[in-house]
Amino acid sequence: MAPNPRILRRSAVALLCVGAQMVAALALAAGPVFVNTRYAKLRSGKTSSAPEVAKLAFGQQLTVASEEASFLQVTTADGKSGWIARQWVASTAPGKAGLAELLGAAARGGGGSGVAYTAGARGLAPEAESHAAGKGDLGQAIADVKEMERYSVPAPKVEAFLKDGRLGEFADQRTARTLRPHREPLACAVGGKPICFLRGIR
């Protein structure tokens, strides 16, 4: 019996997808990679508790030397060597590719075209304020948006928040006590007999 062309096409697409992901994984190991956050730190070891060697800039290019679990061993252009959490790097420079990389497959859309870090650009644009001012009694709303834009949580506080929740690069500090099943309660037992049921230890 002749093979079904539709099945053949689907199989070919599936193989291509798997192949592309394998290639992407290998490419990461070969380097270079790019820092995709302003929070990235180069650490002396492959854990989030290892001392900081240097701060890394958004978009900075790194060369990957090796991979270990959730950390990569990398070298900067000026010769500094250390480890960085895997989620802080992308295989392409910041931009539209981030979406595809997050999903592990090509995604449509892609947002704006800018790749420069723009978080320092705070303040309602004059065009926006002028437009709102022409719409009548929006003074309070304009003031509220300006206040919203001025509000900033310091980076160390965000980092402490992530660390407290064992989130982001600090996920490697989780223990059984910080995790719980999503739906089932965690049973505490002594001598094999359940004595209590706890929900949401963290």
């Binding site: 995709n36 956050t37 302003r38 929070y39 958004f58 989620q87 910041p94 981030g98 979406l99 990389e101 997050l102 947002g111 704006g112 800018g114 790749v115 420069a116 870090y117 723009t118 978080a119 320092g120 650009a121 705070r122 834009e149 965000v158 982001g168």
Partner: peptide, 10 residues
């Protein structure tokens, strides 16, 4: 900061 567009001023 973990999103695909971390460079935006959220």
């Amino acid at each position: 900061i973990h999103s695909p567009r971390p460079e935006l001023p959220y």
